[in-house]
Design a protein around this nucleic acid. Structure first.
Lengths: 174, 174
DNA sequence: GCAACTGATTGCAAATTGCAATCGGGTTGG
DNA sequence: CCAACCCGATTGCAATTTGCAATCAGTTGC
């Protein structure tokens, strides 16, 4: 569960934090998907994470200081997971990672539109997004101006879905 | 050995390429350490990779198109591993990763000086470095102008080592 | 009361990891 | 020529990690 400290190299230590198959996926779903609860992360995960792995990683990410956990006032058993500043500053890395994957890997169009928009938005968009996350998770920053980055990304995703649905005659609207 | 394709999400696919504890470490040693041979990677690895893991990851990285292998003309048994363009474009990601780790993780001073210099150099330095790597590994680009980025990073590292050695009375020079 | 839902936990088989020993071939020094 | 050494791996094995399915106890809505 704990970090190895194989060496003090920054890249090595970063890898020891999220150099596994699930930690960054979970953070991605929290950051871009806006998921805050265990079930949302479990069922919403495109990659089908197992519940024990999710529980383990959430605990680990909390120990590492990337997430915090709070009770949900609306439900005594629900927990709300929040990003810390440490996790929020991963946004540029995720943006780069998405951009790299889009170039070199067989990404699907629907799922890469967000990465494309984030790449085109560049650092100014990342900063705006990080401020929105700070507002949402840390309750600190001022309320973000509309439209939010997440809404913009989601709109792009929806547009692709709608376009593709129409082109194959599956438009849900008559 | 093969990639799962759990989903077509760029971040997920990127993670499936180097979301393990060793692949990026190997690439880091090739990129920043200038290592090209199996033994160099095996013995030079600060983190102590095992030979079977190294062999497995080199094979995997070749299958993924991140490395190529060529015979060393100077020694019939030696192999030279070269980065592909796909791997060279990881430089900005490694720079971000190093910068992030330097802020949030207990890095050691000697090992993080390179990350610091690379961070301060910013995208222009990354581009110069990538061109040097293209020259070195792909034999394509024009010869880099002196001093090379790798030499600059190494000089920074050596300076820290020398300074620390002096401060504790271990200066090798009399 | 009771079914559905909450965030997990447990048991278990399969895969992965890391370590040590070893391999066959090539090179080197004398 | 030959022994010693170096080369990029490979093998066997024990320990750990992973993923899946089933299950848990407490909470909520009805």
């Amino acid at each position: 569960m704990n970090i190895d400290r194989r060496s003090g190299c920054p890249i090595n230590l970063s890898l020891e934090v999220f150099g596994d198959r699930w930690s960054l996926i979970i953070l991605r779903d929290i950051i871009f998907g806006g998921r805050r609860h265990f079930r949302e992360l479990l069922n919403g995960s495109m990659e089908g994470i197992a519940s024990n792995i999710l529980a383990d990683r959430l605990k680990r990410l909390m120990e590492l200081g990337m997430l915090t956990r709070a009770d949900d006032p609306s439900h005594k058993q629900k927990a709300i997971y929040s990003l810390t500043e440490m996790a929020i500053t991963l946004v540029p890395i995720l943006a780069h990672l998405g951009a790299w994957g889009r170039v070199w890997l067989p990404v699907s169009e629907e799922l890469s539109i967000r990465a494309e928009l984030l790449e085109k938005g560049g650092p100014p968009m990342w900063d705006k997004f990080m401020n929105e996350l700070r507002h949402e998770h840390l309750g600190a920053s001022p309320a973000p101006s509309e439209p939010t980055v997440r809404a913009t990304l989601q709109a792009g995703y929806d547009a692709v879905i709608a376009r593709n649905a129409r082109s194959i005659g599956c438009d849900p609207a008559p």
